[in-house]
């Protein structure tokens, strides 16, 4: 059962090559942005400042990852726990409401969620984390529910027949079988959150969105390009990392 959902072992380096390359490009761009100055000069020939220098790119990257990471960890913890709780006999009553809420919440635009979090929580990192958490929860809850519900009744029956307790069935049978679908939900959630966190720099959170916003405000396209390049590379690194973790995904 376990082997069925794991990929066959492959030479490790080539397996992790794509995420590694994206990651190296990202770090390289963070540290070596000033070397690219002639290139950005093409986009902004008249401006004095070409390279965004109000903060180190690596610091901005760290803050971006911190906000997304905290929100993702909380969302995974709460989301998976909630989905498990409503599929146990004691919490079954809540299942219809939670699953409807999770699918309805998907239609909420992330920007609107972020904008609505600010009046309640003020400016800064906190509303961004809360908005990312709320929005990131939904794909995780929905996919965990889908994963747990999709398990063949015969499998659960067999596990019960083997004398497994409820907890053992959950940890050894249900969660491993649902893992690929749960992971797909986490991937969606994190991808959306990297994008939404960037918009968070309009509400006072400092991260990789800063150069873009500052570039738009000051009419400096070079800043915009630097921020966009880094966020794009970050999103691609994280996404390709998930693609390797996720068995049976197309790329």
């Amino acid at each position: 059962m376990q082997t069925a959902i794991r990929r066959p072992v492959r030479p490790t380096i080539s397996h992790w090559l794509a995420p590694l390359v994206w990651l190296l490009l990202l770090l390289g761009a963070c540290w070596g942005m000033s070397w690219l100055e002639p290139l950005f000069r093409l986009a902004e020939p008249d401006s004095r400042d070409i390279i965004y220098d109000r903060a180190d790119f690596i610091v901005l990257l760290g803050r971006h990852l911190q906000v997304v990471g905290v929100a993702a960890l909380l969302a995974i913890g709460i989301g998976v726990a909630a989905a498990i709780a409503v599929t146990r006999p004691a919490g079954r009553d809540f299942l219809p409401m939670v699953s409807q809420l999770a699918s309805m919440g998907q239609t909420f635009p992330p920007v609107a969620v972020l904008a609505l979090a600010v009046p309640v929580l003020g400016f800064g990192n906190l509303p961004v984390i809360v908005a990312l958490l709320l929005y990131g929860l939904l794909p995780i809850v929905r996919n965990t529910l889908a994963g747990l519900e999709s398990i063949d009744g015969g499998v659960a029956e067999a596990a019960r027949g083997m004398g497994m307790t409820g907890g053992q069935r959950l940890w050894r049978v249900e969660l491993p079988l649902a893992a690929p679908i749960i992971l797909a939900g986490i991937r969606t959630s994190v991808t959306i959150n990297i994008a939404t966190a960037a918009i968070g720099s309009t509400v006072g959170a400092s991260n990789l969105g800063d150069p873009i916003i500052s570039g738009i405000v000051n009419g400096n396209i070079a800043y915009v390009l630097q921020g966009a390049l880094l966020i794009g590379l970050l999103a691609l690194s994280v996404d390709s990392l998930f693609a390797r973790l996720q068995p049976g995904s197309p790329d």
Binding site: A195, A198, I212, I221, A228, I231, G232, A235, D239
Partner: peptide, 14 residues
């Protein structure tokens, strides 16, 4: 699809 919206808007600007 993976590229964040703010980044894509920014990249199209130039």
């Amino acid at each position: 699809q993976t590229i964040p919206s703010l980044a894509l808007f920014g990249l199209l600007l130039a």
